[in-house]
Design a binder for these strands. Structure first.
Lengths: 228, 228
DNA sequence: AGCTTAAGTGACATTTGCGTGACGCGGACG
DNA sequence: CGTCCGCGTCACGCAAATGTCACTTAAGCT
């Protein structure tokens, strides 16, 4: 059964973006445009997780979080705070108030999904989602963001890691440069599509023997081989 | 291949401005001055996106949007509402009616383009097209852009791939050279119609045993065989 | 059969797309 | 405050893909 996630966010475009990507990942989504509505929905629907914007009209995210954590009905639902960069101080406060994690805007969809999955995994008792992905001797640990080839750890940057993951998780499917920008870099990126090329190159370099598992589809994009 | 965008807007100067900038960005544009015309064009041309002004003479934007979303032919086309500042309330209404995004006037061309790009990108992934097509032992995977004959992979260029797809998806129907140019090459292609011949030839060569599944209709165009 | 017109074919010049190395910026960190 | 690292951009060169043309072959018509 797919997980139900409540998103409380007042900015329509961000809300849309998040719901879109979560739905694409197979989550069920509920949305609220302000804290009050959010609380109501949380109590009524008991979602599996709540994404909570810090800055909300009326009742702000902290307040909402506090209230949720006080109610036995909702206290066990993991809460992830969405904060804008620069609201650093509030991170701690968020934790003190019982939020379970935070993510700073702007974030890439990839990042968001990784984070949510990790948290859900932590909370999940019944059916654990895999925290490792592998392709031949290439192994990836989603929780620790580490990668090994043949037991030997290799060091990727976040961008490279996300790129690799995005391609690997969609093995066999061609991703255009724009799709990759959208999913790995995020909505705020406004730049040169060939930036992707450079990162693909760096990634290929680092994954040495698996370099050609990332296939180039001329005129379209890149694709991770779907068989070893 | 450039995207086709329908703009429905009654104010001539804004319309002009938008078309100008979109064309400069390489989009193909269709225009309508009122809702009725807009609907007609949408159904007839199936654009990749619709820019819809909220305030229109006769049938207003909301009405048009609702109608579009009710028709299975057009329901999947992303609709972006153009609203004047101050029509805030209507934003939500717009979403309720199925609009996919909105942009408030006045906007900068840059802003508009960025927004449209983002939305188009978002929709590229979502298209629920079947991912495989086959004809006898000829198999095509749309996701990975690969083609096999009798389990053996063959390598087509994208033009060849798209051409094959266009013919195969319209099995039995004759396509003229100009139609093929339009659909495979794109709206802006202005060149020699016999270029198609060359590509048909290359394609036939590569698909060897299926070469004569692509039939020549003398004086008209090409057609993919109806039955195997 | 002979003529006319359309399609097939091979060669070629040009264009396009990708890989690559280098560079500069800005933030993180000591 | 200086250094280092990751990132985004750019310019260049190679190789593949593309579009065009001239020529050949086939098809349809009288």
């Amino acid at each position: 059964m797919s997980k139900k996630i409540l998103i409380v966010e007042d900015e329509q475009d961000i809300l849309q973006l998040i719901t879109f990507h979560l739905q694409a990942e197979g989550f069920a989504t509920l949305t609220a445009l302000n804290g009050i509505k959010g609380l109501e929905l949380a109590k009524e629907q008991i979602p599996d997780m709540i994404l909570l914007d810090l800055m909300l009209p009326g009742m702000d995210g902290l307040e909402v979080c506090k209230t949720l954590k006080r109610d036995p009905k909702t206290e066990n639902i993991p809460v992830v705070m969405l904060t804008a960069k620069g609201e650093e101080i509030d991170r701690i406060v968020g934790f003190e108030l019982g939020a379970d994690d935070y993510i700073t805007k702007p974030f890439s969809p990839r990042e968001l999904i990784l984070r949510l999955r990790a948290i859900l995994r932590r909370y999940e008792t019944e059916k654990p989602t895999p925290s490792k992905i592998s392709f031949g001797d290439l192994q990836i640990d989603l929780d620790s963001y580490r990668v090994w080839i043949d037991k030997e750890q290799i060091y990727l940057t976040i961008t490279e890691f996300n790129l690799l993951l995005e391609l690997l998780e969609n093995k066999g499917r061609v991703r255009s440069r724009n799709q990759l920008l959208d999913r790995v870099w995020g909505y705020q990126f406004d730049g040169y599509a060939r930036t992707v090329d450079t990162h693909v190159r760096r990634l290929r370099q680092k994954i040495g023997p698996y370099a050609d598992a990332i296939e180039t589809v001329r005129g379209v994009g890149y694709r991770f081989k779907d068989s070893e």
